[in-house]
């Protein structure tokens, strides 16, 4: 990406990134986050949805330095500056894991499982990680 020009031209598509895995055991969560940041630099309309084990990606107090991994959980707090403001978390996934909104490190919109389909239907491209 050129540094001095923002991406222009082409239609703006609505992208939904569906995050379904724990953050450090596999590389999916980090790959998703990096893809989101790149997509946002191209002025796409980006939302993220966290379901199943994906809700753990937003857990407060992660300290993966203890296993010599980068603490990319801090990066979720930068998403707002990249104009990625729509973060959705499924209520049932939180509840199943004994978590609540207070355990999360960013502001999110909590939605019910039955609202997920409507969210998916609003987007042009759905990428699952």
């Amino acid at each position: 990406m050129m540094e001095d020009e923002e991406y222009q031209g082409g239609e703006v598509k609505k992208f939904l990134y569906v995050n379904r895995r724990l953050p450090h055991g596999t590389v999916y969560a980090l790959e998703s986050l990096e893809t989101v940041l790149i997509g946002a630099a191209f002025d796409q309309d980006v939302s993220m949805l966290f379901i199943d084990d994906g809700v753990y990606q937003l857990k407060k107090d992660q300290a993966p330095e203890s296993i010599e991994f980068k603490n990319f959980s801090k990066t979720y707090r930068a998403l707002e500056m990249y104009d990625v403001e729509k973060l959705f978390v499924e209520r049932e996934s939180l509840e199943e894991r004994g978590l609540s909104e207070d355990d999360l490190l960013v502001d999110v919109e909590v939605i019910a499982s039955k609202e997920v389909k409507a969210l998916i239907d609003q987007n042009d491209v759905v990428l699952s990680f």
């Binding site: 990406m1 540094e3 001095d4 923002e6 940041l37 630099a41 980068k70 603490n71 990319f72 801090k74 990066t75 707090r77 930068a78 500056m81 990249y82």
Partner: peptide, 27 residues
């Protein structure tokens, strides 16, 4: 240190303006 990411230029410009004053927050 805070976000574990090197900001994209658009984000950097905005954030610098916020922290160091508007005149410095320009490309």
């Amino acid at each position: 240190e805070e976000y574990q990411i090197a900001p994209a230029v658009r984000v950097l410009t905005k954030a610098i303006g916020k922290k160091l004053g508007k005149d410095k927050g320009s490309s």
